[in-house]
C-alpha cells in the first residue's frame, strides 16, 4: 500500500492471547523496584469480567517513568508483567513514577486475555488532576482511573473489564 508516495505496511491483525499463556513468561517480572532509587510502592488489584467474576491467568503489563519522570533510564526498565491468580488478583512492586512534562504521575496498563480480541489499554493515576489523558475520559468515570491509597506504600487498582463501574479503556 502506498500513502503519500511512501511505502506503508498494514499492521498485523491483533488476536486474543488465549487461555494458555505460559505461566513461566509472567514469573519474576512483576518487581521493577529492585536496586532502583526511588519511593518503593506496591500496586495490587483484582480483575473481573461481567457480573464480577474474577479472571485467572490474565496478563497485565505496565510501562512507566522513573522516579524523576524520565522515560529513559539505564538503571530502571520501566516495564513489568504480572498474571492474575485464580482469584483474579495481581501484584506489582515498583517505584512511584515522577511527572513527565505535561503529564501527571501515572502508570500505563496493557491487558491481554482470552475473549479479548485485541489488547486493552488503561492508565492508573495517583490522584485526580488535569492530565490530558485523564481528561480524555468522561468526567463521571475518571475516578475509576485513580488508584485507592491503602497506606503510604500501597495502592489498589481494581479493573473491571465490563459491566457496572466498568474501568475506562483507551483506543489509540
Amino acid at each position: 500500500m502506498t500513502r503519500r508516495g511512501v511505502s506503508h505496511l498494514v499492521p498485523t491483525a491483533e488476536m486474543t492471547l488465549g487461555p494458555f499463556f505460559p505461566r513461566e513468561f509472567a514469573e519474576g517480572v512483576n518487581d521493577l523496584s529492585r536496586g532502583v532509587a526511588g519511593e518503593a510502592i506496591e500496586i495490587s488489584g483484582r480483575v473481573v469480567e461481567l457480573d464480577g467474576r474474577p479472571l485467572d491467568n490474565l496478563i497485565l503489563e505496565i510501562w512507566q517513568a522513573d522516579g524523576a519522570g524520565r522515560l529513559e533510564n539505564p538503571d530502571f526498565s520501566g516495564w513489568g508483567r504480572a498474571a492474575t491468580d485464580a482469584q483474579g488478583n495481581y501484584l506489582f512492586r515498583t517505584i512511584r513514577p515522577g511527572a513527565i512534562p505535561g503529564r501527571a504521575p501515572h502508570i500505563n496498563f496493557l491487558i491481554l486475555y482470552s475473549g479479548l480480541m485485541r489488547q486493552l489499554q488503561t492508565v492508573m493515576f495517583f490522584e485526580s488532576s488535569d492530565d490530558p489523558v485523564l481528561q480524555a475520559v468522561e468526567q463521571a468515570r475518571r475516578g475509576r482511573l485513580v488508584a485507592q491509597k491503602i497506606n503510604s506504600t500501597s495502592y489498589r487498582f481494581d479493573i473491571r473489564l465490563r459491566g457496572g463501574e466498568e474501568t475506562p479503556f483507551f483506543d489509540d
Binding site: D51, L55, G115, L116, L161, R162, F170, D171
Partner: peptide
C-alpha cells in the same frame, strides 16, 4: 463478557 461495554476513549499521544 470481557470486551468493555462503554466506548473506548480517544486520548492524545504523549511521550509516555
Amino acid at each position: 463478557r470481557r470486551w468493555p461495554g462503554q466506548p473506548l476513549a480517544l486520548r492524545p499521544h504523549t511521550p509516555s
